[in-house]
Computed example of a mutant assay.
Amino acid sequence: MIPSFQTTFAVPLSCESCIKDVSTSLYKLDGITNVSADLKAQLVAVEGTTAPSAIVSAIQSTGRDAILRGSGGSDSAAVCILETHSKSVLDQVRGLIRMVQVSPTMTILDISIRGLTPGTYHATIRANGDISRGPESTGSVWEEQLPKSRGILGTLEISKSGMGSVFLDQPIQIWELIGRSVVVSKVKSGKFDREDPDTLVGVIARSAGVWDNDKTVCSCSGKTVWEERKEQADRGML
């Protein structure tokens, strides 16, 4: 059973009616136990056992966008942007994995992908984080030699629309994952084709915990989170 955890989202809110609309939509999801909002800060906090991607979709169904700003406690969240290394693909970003450690022995992984050929895909954590040559340089599956390798995350189905998602849990901790890579492919292991547009790779990086990141303007670029969101969406980010 997955323990309850908290996530925060930046959401454009203009009044109390906005908060009511968003809350009503979220409470329709299984696993949501509490929703609270800060109108001034434009933030919505959600507690429960629901996948962050499902929460984003529910908020978007109200006509508003949502950006995940933090998950779990400090140093207990990570993210992995999945890209193809095929030169035949213009927009190489194809997916995103959000990771939250919800207990000392469990991390949940929320995988969302689009733009792939329909079929069954394998998601695996690799031994190292070198993606300079795509999947070819990521090394073997993490803990591949063990009977129950924690590096084998599971499978997800890509529909005819080219989209797919899965919500998984593994007996791993965030600190063990930082700097490693993830491969999502129709091939579980062995020889990969770097030019295969349906094989995705990404490096696992630490991300903010709940309330660790409430900035609405990037100090580096001066852009708002919504301006950055549009740029990311244009690149194929989910």
Rank of each mutant, 00 (worst) to 15 (best):
G134E: 00
L13E: 05
I19P: 13
H85C: 06
E143Y: 08
V79G: 05
I111Q: 03
I131T: 03
I111D: 01
A54R: 05
V44C: 13
L90F: 15
D65G: 08
L13R: 10
D21Y: 04
P135E: 11
P135Y: 09
S25F: 01
T105Q: 08
S103Q: 04
K20L: 06
P118Q: 01
D65C: 08
G95W: 07
S74K: 10
D30S: 11
G72L: 10
T62A: 05
D21L: 12
T49D: 10
G129Y: 03
I67L: 08
T138M: 10
T33L: 14
R133K: 08
V22K: 12
L109C: 05
S112T: 07
A45L: 11
S74A: 07
A127P: 03
S103I: 05
M106W: 10
C80G: 00
K40R: 13
S25M: 03
T105N: 09
R114F: 10
G119E: 08
P52S: 13
R64L: 03
I55G: 09
N128R: 03
E83A: 11
D130V: 02
L43N: 15
A51S: 06
Q42T: 02
A54H: 01
Q92V: 07
A37M: 04
D75N: 12
T107C: 05
L43R: 15
V44N: 09
A127R: 04
S112F: 01
I131L: 12
S140Q: 06
E144G: 10
G48V: 02
P52E: 14
V35R: 13
